[in-house]
Simulated scan of single mutants.
Amino acid sequence: MTRGCHHGTHDPVIDSPALAKPVQAGGVPIIIVGGGKRRTPALAVRYAAQFNAPFVSATEASRLFERVREVAREAGREPASLRCSAAQVVCMGRDDATLRRRADLPPGPRPVRPRPPVRPRPPGRRRRRCAAPAHLTAPLRWSGHPAPPE
């Protein structure tokens, strides 16, 4: 069996089994995500193996799925050949109080604190190079599944 090593700048890899990856029938599966009513379903029907309705109610997801199936029928594609899924927020907690507190957060992404402005480097001054922490330069040893017999 061929084993690969790579001594990169940041993450060297030692003794990794260089196993060939199988070719996927139909190419790499594409997932189209969105809530559009016209173009998104058309793109999903034309290119995707899966359509995903992101962070919408069950009723809205159902409407989006039905629209994708309708467009698939119009395009001559079997609607069952396009998998439909939905991304949802899941709250978990050790107890009911924690769960309620986490579930009461407003939906959507958390506000991002603004970063301080970046000062431009004076002309002629080179960028400082920093040494990478030891845990980033240590070689990564393959610890995945056992290698198949040679």
Rank of each mutant, 00 (worst) to 15 (best):
V45Q: 00
V45P: 00
Y47C: 05
A48W: 08
A49V: 08
F51K: 08
N52M: 09
N52G: 04
P54M: 02
V56W: 02
V56S: 00
V56E: 00
V56I: 10
V56D: 01
V56N: 00
V56M: 03
S57V: 00
S57T: 15
A58E: 13
A58G: 07
T59N: 14
T59E: 15
T59W: 13
A61H: 01
A61E: 02
S62E: 11
R63Q: 15
R63K: 15
F65D: 09
F65E: 11
E66Y: 04
R67D: 05
R67G: 03
V68H: 02
R69K: 13
E70R: 14
A72I: 11
A72C: 03
A72M: 05
R73M: 06
R73C: 03
A75F: 03
G76S: 02
R77V: 11
R77I: 03
P79N: 01
P79H: 07
A80T: 13
A80F: 02
A80P: 05
A80L: 12
A80G: 07
S81R: 14
S81K: 11
L82H: 04
C84S: 12
C84R: 14
C84P: 02
S85Y: 09
S85K: 05
A87T: 15
A87M: 08
Q88W: 07
Q88H: 07
Q88G: 06
V89Y: 10
V90A: 14
V90K: 06
V90Y: 10
C91Y: 15
C91F: 15
M92N: 04
R94G: 15
D95W: 05
D96G: 09
D96K: 11
D96L: 10
A97V: 12
L99P: 03
L99H: 10
L99E: 08
L99W: 10
L99C: 04
R100K: 14
